[in-house]
Amino acid sequence: MNECILRINHLSKTFGTNRVLRDIDFTVDAGDVISIIGASGSGKSTLLRCINLLETPTSGEILYHGRNVLTRGTNAPAYRAHVGMVFQSFNLFNNMTVLENCMAGQVKVLKRDREQARAHAMEYLEKVGMAPYINARPRQISGGQKQRVAIARAMAMDPEVLLFDEPTSALDPEMVGEVLSVMKALAESGMTMLVVTHEMAFARDVSRRVVYMNNGVICEQGTPDQIFNHPTRLETVDFLSRFRKS
């Protein structure tokens, strides 16, 4: 059994009267590759944003190495530095080049010196195949390239967990592949990943655990084989059959 990095206990989130997350319990162990699937509006993204404290949960706790990060004294920026996030809309810094994007966090947050940060950033930019574009600005590269830079930027911080919020949903179909193959390589390198996705093939072939969410609750979770081939809940069967049809 690997070390438990994140444990989420009874997490709930309401926007006004809308209960988006209801009593979520689950854990993320070191080396886990977890796909979160479910219909739009089922709370997948909100769950991810709560884990990164971009949203404040209404109740429950998030234990990071056994310490609750939802208490008042938590240093949220320091916690976020360990929990990387890749967004649907990339969110690269528009005022910086590709290389500066990958260095900013290392220099400002981790206080690495510029040379060290540069070398580290280059290492990951090479891994995602974006090394030739280090002088480009985000507006000058394609969506798939932006997302690969965003992954390199998150990885350059040496996070313990990397959260992906629908990383390929804003991409043209032809660019989805390049991002997924980078993510697959990351998963194979042993990175702990939590991926909200609509790419069922990725969930089935790459992840080690699949979580199906419906109406703000975790409906079913298990290995890809269990979820895709032997689902036990009616909702899961429904959801997957809708996907197979399309």
Binding site: R80, H82, F87, F93, A104, G105, K108
Partner: peptide
């Protein structure tokens, strides 16, 4: 764009 703030926060700024 609010995404810029989120991107910066997500890397711990």
């Amino acid at each position: 764009d609010p995404g810029q703030t989120e991107g910066a926060k997500a890397i711990g700024m």
